[in-house]
Design a protein around this nucleic acid. Structure first.
Lengths: 107, 107
DNA sequence: GCGAAATGCAACCAGAAAGTTGCCTAATCG
DNA sequence: CGATTAGGCAACTTTCTGGTTGCATTTCGC
């Protein structure tokens, strides 16, 4: 009954890395940004950042657009909402009286 | 601005696997359950399930308790709420007028 | 007490992932 | 035009991960 298991796993996987969460944070608070901009300050190479961004792109979490010689990346709000919704549903279900009853019974 | 990056990554990583999401689903809708019970029906070995559960336990997503000869696992609601909250904050921040402004400016 | 059930532990394996280095291409700005 | 800046591609290393098999241990039911 919990929804869309198959589709949600890659999305959470995309969030499940410290560096990628930092990128999400930057993209979130700073808006769309170029690769050079994103990799500035982070302790790893630009190529590694590219790999992370492409991985996130494959899971739909982020989107890229060429602009001249630079690559602009931005967060994909829709996908983020999906992840949030998944957790909301799981939480809600867990919070239900039925779950609590079974918890008690099987204890 | 976005909170608790360091702590959130392992949590999302724990959710970022199809099998583990299935376990979350089972634990969520069925309440606490034994290892044998959880591994029944899944196409992988019991040992693999154990590894997944222990991984989830390390990230605080799940909790185990011995009961006679069986091991009872249950979801940790608190941790699930944390993940949800993280996404809510990121989403909210992204949705803010400031983010949209920067989106426009840097476009 | 004995057999079956539920689990733990350790070694092992293949493939994915995170990161690097080296070099190449395409815009941009003096 | 020439130098610089932004980025792409490919090969390679190391470590992590998901999964396996084999065997030992504890506990339950009869």
């Amino acid at each position: 009954m919990v929804p869309a298991i198959s589709g949600s796993a890659p999305l959470f996987a995309a969030l499940g890395d410290r560096t990628r969460l930092q990128l999400v944070s930057r993209l979130c608070s700073g808006g769309p940004s170029s690769l050079a901009n994103l990799s500035a300050g982070l302790p790893i190479t630009r190529q590694a950042i590219t790999k992370h961004l492409r991985a996130m792109e494959r899971s739909g979490l982020v989107h890229s657009r060429r602009k001249g010689r630079e690559m602009i990346w931005r967060l994909e709000r829709r996908r983020l909402r999906e992840a949030r919704r998944y957790l909301e549903i799981v939480s809600a279900q867990w919070d239900s009286a039925l779950a609590r009853l079974r918890d008690f019974v099987e204890d």
